[in-house]
């Protein structure tokens, strides 16, 4: 299969007054043609930093960035100049952020903002661009797209604004879209709408998608493959079905249990004990050990490696669950 993105050994450090923040510690990512890959983990685990580093949008300084390989569509992005990156961004590699309000220009109509994509990347005339814009808005499920194109961002609802971001991201049929928490700020009903549209567009356009989220219920609906991240490291990697039917890492199991279900018992929520470690003082050994009910002496001393575990799966754990007769509950 054709590989769209290849990232090897990404490390990002932020020097601060109170110590070094090791935001990302050696992350590898592979994304293939037409697939949706999810990057999941709790707040602060380094998801956004990773996606910004891939887009080469991370300011350095303050960030200190190192990576062995960053290949996009066969090209070495580490060698690209900022001018070349600007040409790639938006056209071949697009991004959707969580907060539509901050990624849209408040004083420009949404139509003009989408027009801009076509005019910049294809050199379209004003008229030609607008025609494409209206078509894009229609595809994304915005009623009365011609009229809506003349609205300013604040005149649209949250779900509508998020759809405009989708229209912008898909405008130039990019090879890869990175969506950082695209529905986290939305209601459940509107989240379902936006996810369904995003999935339909991704499949229809043959785009690859990197979906960044903290919510495994979103992953269950959207992703083909999943990377679970904890405190700057990948702790589990698996195809979606395998991940949900047989999670190996205790952290993955914890994240799944934390999603509330309509079928659960009342007045009690399953939680992962403890909190995410401070990025300045990460624990010894396995970063997850203070919160892990299976932790042993070895976990406290030694960081496990990301080991292969069956076909296309990897797990960073000395006592993986659900393998060799042990079950996950």
């Amino acid at each position: 299969m054709e590989q769209v993105l290849k990232l090897r050994n990404l490390k990002v450090v932020f020097p601060t007054d109170y110590g070094l923040i090791r935001a990302v510690e050696g992350v590898d990512l592979d994304i293939y043609h037409r697939e949706c890959v999810a990057l999941v983990g709790e707040s602060g685990c380094g998801k956004s930093v990773t996606s910004q580093a891939v887009m080469r949008l991370l300011d350095s300084p303050p960030a200190l960035i190192r990576m062995d390989v960053l290949e996009f569509d066969g090209r070495d992005l580490t060698q690209c100049t900022e001018a070349e990156m600007q040409e790639i961004r938006g056209k071949e590699l697009a991004m959707i952020f969580q907060d539509a309000m901050t990624s849209l220009n408040p004083v420009m109509t949404v139509g003009n903002q989408i027009d801009e994509m076509y005019r910049r990347h294809y050199g379209d005339s004003k008229q030609a661009a607008r025609e494409k814009t209206v078509h894009a808005l229609e595809l994304i499920g915005i009623p009365e797209p011609k009229e809506r194109a003349n609205s300013f961002p604040h005149q649209l609802s949250g779900g509508m604004r998020q759809r405009v971001l989708l229209a912008m991201a898909f405008a130039c049929m990019p090879k890869l879209i990175i969506a950082d928490e695209p529905t986290t700020a939305l209601d459940v009903t509107i989240q379902a709408q936006v996810l369904k549209t995003l999935r339909g567009m991704q499949r229809g356009c043959g785009t690859s998608l990197l979906l960044v989220t903290h919510d495994l219920s979103v992953v269950a609906k959207m992703a083909d493959r999943v990377y679970v991240m904890y405190a700057g490291k990948i702790v589990e990697k698996a195809p979606v079905k395998e991940l949900f039917t047989n999670p190996h890492h205790p952290y993955t199991v914890g994240l799944m249990a934390a999603v509330p279900r309509l079928t659960d018992e009342k007045k009690k929520f399953t939680q992962i004990p403890g909190t995410v470690p401070s990025p300045v003082h990460k624990p010894s050994g396995c970063y997850f050990h203070p919160r892990c009910e299976y932790a042993t002496e070895r976990c406290r001393r030694e960081m496990p490696r990301l080991e292969p575990m069956g076909r296309d799966r990897q797990v960073r754990c000395f006592h993986p669950l659900g393998v060799g007769g042990k079950s996950s509950d």
Binding site: Q191, Q193, S217, A220, K221, T245, L262
Partner: peptide, 17 residues
């Protein structure tokens, strides 16, 4: 509209338009 956490082959997303 509540997304459940189980993986199912259909992966249906129920939408209120």
């Amino acid at each position: 509209a509540v997304l459940d956490i189980y993986f199912s082959e259909e992966r249906e997303i129920v939408v209120l338009p």
